[in-house]
Every structure is written in C-alpha cells, then in structure tokens.
Write a protein that binds this DNA or RNA. Structure first.
Lengths: 337, 337
DNA sequence: CCCAGGCGTAACAACGATTACCTCATTCCA
DNA sequence: TGGAATGAGGTAATCGTTGTTACGCCTGGG
C-alpha cells in the first residue's frame, strides 16, 4: 500500500550517489552513459517519481502559476482559465485557480497564500485597485481584463471603450436617438470604460446622456431583467439597448423576448451561446476570452524566462458581428404605457 | 526587494526557539501568554509568512486538492469546479485544476503529476476506464459524473439512465412515436447510460429502436447540427428529439430554429443559458453541477478527515422542467423531403 | 616522465518547517 | 515529603531534492 521511493533508494539500487541519480533525472550531461543507464533502469524498476514539493523547496519556486478571476463559473472566465491551463500544460506548469467572488479582502488573502506557495507567477483579474499587497515580492504578475491601480506590470485587456463606442455608433447609425445602457457597477473598470465609450458615441452625435436610460447596477442577469423592465415601462422608452456584458445581455434578452418587443434594437458587449439562434439573433461585440488567456500566458512565460523589459500593455481589438438585433430601426412611436 | 523571513528569524526576534515560534503559529496551547505575545509581535513586525512548501514537505501532504475534468471551458464543468473551489476555500485548501481534453494518456499523466505534488485528495471525472494508474497510492479520490472502472472509491453521479427514461417517457406521453436520440460517443459512460434510458422508455412502450434516429457521435455542437439536419432530411423524420447533453442541444436547437421547425418536440438533458428564452422554450432535465461539486467536495473532505467506511455511491435525481418544446404534439404528417 | 585540466562522482550542506524526544521547574496528591 | 504529573520550552533529526565543493582518475602536451 505504501512505499515511498526516494531518490536515495534509486541511487542505492543503481549503486551510485543520490546526486548522480539527480543528475540523470534532470538531464545533466555530465554523467557517463553506463551510470545513466543503471540509474534509469533503477528508476523504472522501483517506480520512482520525483517529489515535486521537495524539488520546489530546494529550488525556491514551485512549477505552478496562480490564476485569480472573479468567478470560475462565468463562461468568460472559464474560457480564459481553460486557455491558460492549456498553455501551462505545454510548459509543464500546474495551475491553481481561485476566484475572488468580489469579496473585498479575498484578493489580497489569495495572493498572499499563493505567494506562500512560491508560485512562479500570477495572472490576475484585479478587483480592488489597491495592489499594495503584492508590492514587495518579485513574483511576475500579468493582469488581465482590467488595469491594476498603477502597479507596473503587464496588462492584457480588450478595447473596452473603443468597442463600446463602435457598438453604440452602430445603433445610432440606424437612427436610434434613445439608446439605453445597461451594465455592471461602474466601480468595475471594464464597466466604466464601456460606459465611457457609450457616452463618447452619444456626444459625437450631439445626443444627451439621459439618466433614466442608464442602469449601472446590474451585477447579474436578474438585476438586468429588472432594469430592462423599467426601461420599457418609461413614458418614453428607449428604442435600443446597449448591454455592456454578456451576463446583462441574458437578462435583457429574456425581457425583450417575454414582452415580444422585437422592435427594440440591441447590441451586446460579448458574445454568448445561442445569441445567433434567438429571434432576432443578437448583434454582438465579439471578444475572445481564449485569446485573452493565451496572450496573458505568453506574457507571463516571457517574464518567467527572464524578460525584464518595461511592462507591456496589450489591447485586444473587438469586432462587431451584426446578426439582426443591432440593425433594427426605431419604430415610429414607441410609447410603452 | 527581497527579504525572505524564516521562522528562525522570528524566533530570534522573539528571543525564543524556532520550535516555540512554530508552536505559536500552529496554535499549540503549550506556550505561555507572554511568549506567545512576543512571537506574534515579531511575526507581524517582520511580516513573516509560513513557507507552505516547506511545511507540506515536512508534513508529507500538501494542502491542495487536484481536480480533473474533461474541459474547463464547458459551463457544466466550470460550475462544478467553481463549487469545489468554494468548498475548498472554506477549508483552507488550494485547488489545482486540470483538464484531460479527452486525450488518451493525459489522465494518467495528470494524476501522476498531482500525486508527485502530494495533493491531499483528488476529484476526477474519469475519462478512461483503466484506473490502474492510481492503484497503489493511498490518496483519497472521489469520482464525479462517471463511475471508475471497478476502482473502489466514492462516486457522485446523476441518475443518467433514470433521467433519460423520464425525459423520453415525457415525449412519448405526448404521442410521439419517432423520437430521435442525439448524444456524444457511447464510449463516455454518461452517454451510454442516457442512451440506455432512451431505449428503456421506448421498449416500455413497445416501440422499436430505429437506427436512423440514433446519432451517437456528437462530441460538439457542430456535429450535433449536422446530425440534426440529417434527421430532418429523412424520408420519415422524427417528430421529437431527445438530446443527451447541453452541448448537443445547442446544435439541435440551432438547426430547428434555422429551419423554423417549431413543430418538432425536444427535451434536453441538462439545462443551458437562454433555454427558457427560445421559442419555443426548451424543456430540460435539470441537473445541478453546483450540487455535484458540493457533494463531491463533501465526500472528499470526509475522507480527508479519516472516514474509512465503504465507498459511497451518491446518485443525484433529476427534475424535468417543462417549458414548451417538450410538450409539442406530433404533427399530422411530417414528411420532410 | 610530470603536471595541468577535464570528467565522473561522492560527501555534505542547505531549502524552511515540523516532529520526536528531552530538560527543567513547578504543582498536586498520597 | 516523595514522586508523578503537568507545563513551557529547547535540541537535533528529518522531509526529499539539489547546489557546492572536493577528490580521484585519465589523457595529452611539453
């Protein structure tokens, strides 16, 4: 049942020293072919496996990277993680995933605990802007999706503001004058930037930003549903909706469908499953979480390989995918009540 | 920039021995209040953090559990992982996630590498049936979603066969005689069981299992689309479809929608986003990945706590949620060509 | 024929914390 | 009052691997 085979056991079986056995295992060339053969034979006869904990302790770093996202269950982050895991696998690294669940102190605690494990690097979706907690250590960090306060590190984000601007311009081009905005809390950087893009587009066209058409407290689909209902019940309801996040889009879509409001245009920031199957199909701003994950992993690996150049700021452009819902023209008079 | 504080540094600062400092840190009661205070003071003055690698090496196990699923990006598994992570967090454990991506040898390699890290336990969605690779070690393992070959361990699954039977019976009750079955490869246990449930239901009603109505090679939505098209193009097409997995449902739904075949009934094994927003809304067999994850974590933790009772086989029942698509009655004559 | 120098190896320490075991008082009870 | 029990704390060994240093052996140039 239990038989921990140590390196010294292998060495004994191969009639050599532990250090030499270690050399063989780590591919050190300074070992004679004969000795190498004996060690290798002993290794698989005894079924020896390196103890990675001991190895990491000795080496000072663990072959592991830590990933912190907001929610693992969110399809967006799940895709990011999946891609990071793939990249890590290719490099022989393990991935420890954690989520901050938007809890205020979790992030610092997680980083702390990961550093106690001596992770080789970190990929973080920053939630708080106070990043003092990782100030002093030298662990390479790459931030994704959002910028860290003013912590000097690589960042990979989407062109949130530009994308939002594009999306709203698209709606305006079809003649909409009253475009609602629905998003998560503006405390979250992505929401803030997308909101800024929304404002940009309206102002370009000389349109006012109407308070009753802006809902920025939708942290989940349920809230998005509630707010969308309120929009539709306004005396002068919007003729188009720009949803700043897939999650909120799910809520908005649900309401539009329930009320059979196929006359209201909509664009979603972020694609989602079945967006193309709905009637009308939903026009989206396509963002690739896979690409985000891949680029982040690449940056981190470069740092692990000793790249000490200045922090790189990678911005991923977005593409608008017209599918129907974004090309609906405003109906004559959309009085709701 | 770098200042590794060791336990002995703390001890020195508190004018005591490393052992006593260790006692304080691990909450050993046999330390005087005064000494304890001095040590604690030294700890936060120096900013000491335990080196978890060193601790784990000494203790023999790491405060980490390994999770192996098929795909991290799959919303189903993402939810499972998220729930496991939450449970692990509460217990102070880290979670290393990996995916086998259905590659033949990955699973064994992953388990191997996780055991080399001395993970405290494993939660696995077995892909291969040959589990010899984890035979000899004593690491607690809990299998989820599928049964391991005949490896004695806790298993948490859904009532796949019973659920499928319920779903198909539901369709038959509405008068369908030609019910198509669409699933992943039958090499995957869940698919096999759901197929068995499908057959059960047909046989109960004295209906034949028609080969041309059974597609069991849909590993992704694209394949499901293709097969659904073939179904609809049959001389005598099905009047209802039972999709054995959310992923295949996405494909089937897409085709039905594109062809505007609102006359074809459908039930999906597994809920998915927007299933209730489609027209018609999709009747599903609701399975809770969160519950699966939670129960698996609970089982594992019980084992970690020294539970040595016989392996437990937990089966989670499923609930049919009628939403419309499953209650469509067969149309008079559904000739397609 | 001698010595520098490279190669293969061995012995040992170190990584940082914990555990097993031991000491020295003090206290409590027969 | 003797002696066991209890409390507080220390010393050294250990976890398994790898970096360091040193040593013996063999080869080739002078």
């Amino acid at each position: 049942m239990k038989k921990p085979v140590r390196l010294s056991d292998v060495a004994a079986a191969a009639e050599t020293s532990a250090k030499t056995a270690s050399r063989v295992i780590n591919g050190d060339p300074r070992v004679s072919a004969e000795t190498r053969r004996r060690v290798e034979e002993a290794v698989d006869r005894l079924g020896y496996r390196v103890d990675l904990l001991a190895r990491s302790l000795r080496r000072g770093v663990d072959d592991t990277i830590g990933v912190i996202v907001e929610s693992i269950a969110d399809p967006f982050f799940a895709a990011v993680i999946s891609e990071i895991e793939l990249a890590a696998l290719r490099r022989g690294l393990n991935v420890i995933v954690t989520s901050n669940r938007r809890l205020p102190n979790r992030e610092a605690a997680i980083v702390d605990s990961l550093q106690q494990r001596r992770v080789a690097g970190l990929i973080i979706t920053p939630h708080t802007s106070d990043l003092s907690y990782l100030a002093s250590t030298g662990t390479p960090v790459v931030f994704v999706d959002r910028h860290p306060g003013n912590f000097p590190a690589d960042v990979v984000t989407f062109d949130d503001r530009g994308g939002a601007r594009t999306a709203v311009r698209h709606l305006l081009r079809y003649g909409h004058q009253r475009v609602a905005f629905i998003s998560d809390d503006l405390g979250v950087e992505t929401s803030r930037n997308r909101h800024a893009g929304y404002v940009d587009a309206l102002q370009e066209s000389g349109l006012p930003v109407v308070g009753e058409l802006v809902a920025t407290d939708c942290s989940d689909a349920a809230m998005a549903r509630a707010r969308t209902c309120e929009f539709l019940d306004l005396d002068e309801p919007p003729t188009a909706i720009f949803s700043a996040r897939s999650e909120t889009s799910l809520g908005a879509v649900k309401v539009l469908h329930d009320r059979k409001r196929t006359d209201i245009a909509m664009v979603s920031f972020g694609d989602f499953a079945l967006a193309d199957v709905l009637s009308p199909a939903i026009t989206v701003l396509e963002q690739s979480p896979e690409l985000l994950g891949r680029l982040a992993a690449e940056r981190l690996f470069a740092r692990l390989d000793g790249d000490h150049s200045d922090p790189v700021n990678t911005v991923i452009p977005l593409r608008l995918v017209p599918r129907g819902s974004g090309e609906i023209v405003p109906s004559g008079g959309g009085a709701g009540a």
